[in-house]
Simulated assay, not measured.
Amino acid sequence: MKILFLGDIVGRSGRDAFVERVPGLRQQLGLDLVVVNGENASHGFGLSPDMARAFLAAGADVITLGNHAWDRRELIPYLSEEPRVIRPINFPPGTPGLGAVVVEVAGGRRALVINAMGRLFMDPLDDPFRAVQAELQKHRLGQTVHAAILDVHAEATSEKQAFGHSFDGLVSLVVGTHTHVPTADHQILPGGTAYQTDVGMCGDYDSVIGMQKGGAALRFWRKMPGERLAPAEGEATLCGIYVETDDATGLALRIAPMRQGGRLSQILP
Results as ranks from 00 to 15, higher is better:
residue 75 L to Q: 03
residue 4 L to E: 11
residue 164 G to I: 09
residue 267 I to C: 14
residue 16 D to N: 12
residue 153 H to E: 04
residue 25 L to T: 01
residue 233 E to C: 00
residue 139 H to K: 00
residue 86 I to C: 06
residue 72 R to T: 10
residue 187 Q to W: 05
residue 5 F to I: 10
residue 238 L to V: 10
residue 222 R to L: 14
residue 19 V to Q: 05
residue 266 Q to R: 13
residue 192 G to A: 04
residue 101 V to C: 11
residue 48 S to Y: 03
residue 131 A to K: 14
residue 4 L to D: 01
residue 190 P to G: 05
residue 217 A to Q: 02
residue 114 I to C: 11
residue 151 D to Q: 05
residue 250 G to R: 01
residue 64 T to D: 02
residue 93 P to G: 06
residue 241 I to E: 06
residue 95 T to E: 03
residue 78 Y to L: 12
residue 211 M to H: 00
residue 183 T to Y: 01
residue 13 S to W: 04
residue 96 P to H: 10
residue 166 S to G: 02
residue 229 L to G: 09
residue 233 E to F: 11
residue 70 W to I: 07
residue 133 Q to P: 07
residue 159 E to L: 08
residue 5 F to H: 03
residue 220 F to E: 11
residue 1 M to P: 14
residue 96 P to T: 00
residue 235 E to I: 00
residue 36 V to D: 04
residue 141 L to G: 06
residue 179 T to L: 00
residue 241 I to K: 02
residue 131 A to C: 09
residue 8 D to E: 10
residue 90 N to Y: 00
residue 29 L to K: 00
residue 196 Q to Y: 01
residue 174 V to H: 10
residue 52 A to M: 05
residue 198 D to V: 11
residue 198 D to W: 03
residue 207 S to N: 12
residue 62 V to S: 05
residue 13 S to P: 10
residue 255 I to M: 01
residue 107 G to Q: 12
residue 148 A to E: 07
residue 127 D to V: 04
residue 22 V to E: 08
residue 47 L to S: 01
residue 189 L to F: 09
residue 86 I to H: 07
residue 8 D to H: 11
residue 150 L to V: 15
residue 145 V to Q: 06
residue 262 G to A: 02
residue 14 G to Y: 05
residue 9 I to R: 05
residue 140 R to D: 14
residue 109 R to M: 13
residue 264 L to K: 12
residue 36 V to E: 06
residue 72 R to A: 08
residue 224 M to S: 11
residue 56 L to K: 14
residue 132 V to W: 09
residue 237 T to F: 02
residue 139 H to M: 02
residue 180 H to T: 04
residue 19 V to H: 11
residue 242 Y to T: 00
residue 14 G to D: 01
residue 88 P to E: 01
residue 192 G to D: 14
residue 88 P to Y: 09
residue 250 G to F: 15
residue 4 L to W: 10
residue 195 Y to E: 13
residue 251 L to A: 10
residue 145 V to E: 09
residue 239 C to W: 06
residue 90 N to P: 13
residue 72 R to C: 00
residue 217 A to N: 03
residue 251 L to R: 14
residue 210 G to D: 07
residue 137 Q to E: 15
residue 139 H to F: 14
residue 219 R to K: 15
residue 230 A to P: 07
